[in-house]
Simulated scan of single mutants.
Amino acid sequence: MKILTSAVAAMLLAAGSAHALTETYSQSSAMATTNWSNTFGITQFDSSLGTLNSVTLTLTGTVLGNANAESLDAAPSTITLNSSANITAAFLATSLSVTVSPIATVSFAATSYDDDLDFGGTSGNSYSGLTNFSTGTGTLTSNLAAFIGTGTIDMTLSAVGTSSGSGPGNIITQFLTQGSGLATVAYDYTPTSSVPLPAGLPLLAVALGGLGLLRRRRKAA
C-alpha cells in the first residue's frame, strides 16, 4: 500500500510540473549566384504560451560552383581550386547570427604552359558541380525581448563568394560560385500552465489515503 501511494504521489507531482517545450520556424534561400541577400520575417514568440528561455539559430549553407584554371608557367606545377562561400543568417536587431563557410576543393597537376589558353590540354583544367555544405548553430539566452511579440522579427540570409585558386606564379583562374541557405529558429520555453491532471487521479489518491488510514487503525486496535 505504501509503495502504491508513493507512486500515485509521484504521478501527481509529475502531472503538475511544467516541462520546457520547443517551437520552430524555418526559412530558406534557393541556390543562386553570389553575392545575394534576402530578408525574411520570422514569427515572434507569443508570451501567452509561457516564458521564453532561449533562441537557437541553426544554419546549413551549401556551395555549388564551376572552376577553371590554366597555368602559364614555364615549369610543371600543382594547381588547387576552391569553390567556397560565406553564408550568414542574422537577426540584425539582436546579437544572434551564424556564419558557415562550405568549401569544395580540387587539385590537378599541370605541365608547363601548352601555348593554348583553353582551360584544358596539359596545362589547364575545368571543373563543374563542385559542391559541399556546412552547418552551424548559435544560441541566445539573454536580451530576448526582440523575439517576443505577436508579429515578426527580421532575419537576413546572405551569401558572399570566396572562391580562390593557388599554384604557380603565372596562373589564370575563373569561378562561378553559387550558394544556398536553410535557417531554422527554435524557441525554447516553459509553458505558463501545468499539464492537467487525469480526471480520476485525485480521487484515487484520496481513496488510497483512506485505505491507508483504515489499515493503521486496525493495526492499532
Rank of each mutant, 00 (worst) to 15 (best):
G129F: 05
G129L: 07
L130C: 12
L130V: 11
T131I: 07
T131F: 05
T131H: 12
T131C: 10
F133R: 14
F133G: 15
S134D: 12
T135S: 10
T135A: 04
T135M: 03
G136L: 01
T137A: 03
T137D: 01
G138C: 04
G138Y: 01
G138V: 01
T139Y: 01
T139C: 00
T139L: 00
T139D: 01
L140Q: 15
T141F: 00
T141I: 06
T141Y: 01
S142A: 14
N143K: 11
N143I: 03
L144N: 07
L144E: 06
L144Y: 04
L144M: 06
L144W: 02
A145E: 13
A145L: 08
A145Q: 14
A145R: 12
A146L: 06
A146D: 13
A146W: 00
A146Q: 13
I148K: 11
I148D: 10
I148R: 11
T150V: 09
T150M: 07
T150A: 14
G151N: 12
T152Y: 03
T152P: 12
T152D: 11
I153Y: 03
I153F: 02
D154L: 09
D154E: 12
D154A: 15
D154P: 15
M155C: 13
M155F: 02
T156P: 10
T156H: 06
L157W: 01
L157C: 05
A159E: 05
A159V: 07
A159D: 10
A159F: 02
V160G: 14
V160F: 05
V160N: 15
G161W: 00
G161D: 05
T162F: 01
T162E: 08
S163T: 09
S164L: 04
S164C: 10
